[in-house]
Design a protein around this nucleic acid. Structure first.
Lengths: 200, 200
DNA sequence: TTGAAAAACGGAACAATGTTCCGTATTTGT
DNA sequence: ACAAATACGGAACATTGTTCCGTTTTTCAA
């Protein structure tokens, strides 16, 4: 016992203790429970209930997610990723205009299942700060591609900002008439398009 | 003193005791305080603070307004009325298309000053039930007139529902890019219009 | 003017929730 | 197997909406 092993409090930097198994287990259970809870009761589901459903104490929740919103963010990150990933797939399978429409449809469906998310997303509440950022960084490029392609193809006008559109749709979704309102917005996209090839 | 006067506990129906002066005074103070509070801190301002600013106890607040949202509703009713009243005025002073645009502008400004209202308005929360109804009943006819007039003049399409548009704008407002998004929505209005007379 | 009934008042007390704290239990590395 | 490190659970605290009730104010008629 003389080599370069680390006794208890020997050093402090560059450790590599592997993550404890219970941590991973609890984190998974938590994320799973939260996902279910958010889908059924909305993003305002009480932390206590989520913790209980996951079989852990609230302390555990808050150690992993300092703020309630961090949990929300974590749960949605996955689905956001999935939604973003759908863009290139659609772009490869359909013509520009069609791909754009289909992706928006997908996006609307995603937002719709998250009762209260759209509201929380952009409502001054500082607690939900991380979410919009992640949304933007991931969904904006995805939509941007589709938008650009469609504009190049002359299907829509070219001066629409992906971020704006993302926000607008998110805000519109959740309403009873969301479908119609989004359709109206999409028509707005076509309003000043340069060519008028594919519109009937 | 024998006529038809009511002694203390004589009858129970059809009384006409005039409203107590303190009631009116407190109600005014409350409405005023709430209005200010909502404008500065948003509609989520704590009841306690509003009560304090008005110089009354929370009990008084709740006697007048059973639910927190009732207070919110009362405060906004006035401004909603004012906004609705602006429609016929604009209609009389401008041509259909112009009047519509100006009113929407007015409406956007109104919504913008109420941080959080747009979100609360249509967010499942049963507490804010009375608001949407009042909005609809007062603003829908107002916008409906303008919409109809503009459609008749061929400035916009004729299949747009006033309620839908009201909701959509309310949801869009509050965002940083609200201006642009609403503009996009308005362009959507013009998309399928029958004639193309006044558009440059 | 006066006094009792009616109405309203203020704020303590209660309930629901987010968040923090800390004594205890679990896991890890030797 | 043991000690240090880490994580755990849940009680306790803070904030806010809402209810309750003893006290105060106002009204009305004599």
């Amino acid at each position: 016992m003389s080599g370069k092993r680390r006794t208890q409090n020997e050093l402090a930097e560059g450790v590599d203790r592997r993550v404890r198994v219970d941590v991973q287990r609890n984190l998974d259970a938590l994320l799973q429970a939260a996902k279910t809870m958010f889908a059924t009761s909305g993003v305002d589901a009480p932390v206590r209930e989520i913790a209980e459903k996951a079989g852990v104490g609230v302390g555990t929740v808050y150690r992993h997610f300092p703020r309630r919103s961090d949990l929300v963010a974590a749960v949605f990150r996955r689905e956001i990723d999935a939604c973003a990933a759908a863009a290139p797939l659609l772009a490869a399978s359909y013509e520009p205009g069609e791909a754009l429409l289909k992706w928006i449809e997908r996006y609307v469906a995603f937002i719709a299942t998250k009762r209260g998310l759209a509201e929380a997303l952009h409502s001054g509440d500082p607690v939900f700060e991380p979410l919009p950022l992640y949304f933007q960084q991931n969904l904006e490029p995805a939509l941007g591609q589709l938008l650009h392609a469609a504009a190049t193809a002359g299907e829509i006008r070219g001066d629409v900002d992906a971020g704006d559109l993302l926000n607008a749709i998110a805000r519109l979704s959740g309403a009873d008439q969301a479908q119609r309102m989004v359709a109206l917005l999409v028509d707005g996209l076509r309003y000043g398009k340069k060519a008028s090839s594919g519109v009937r």
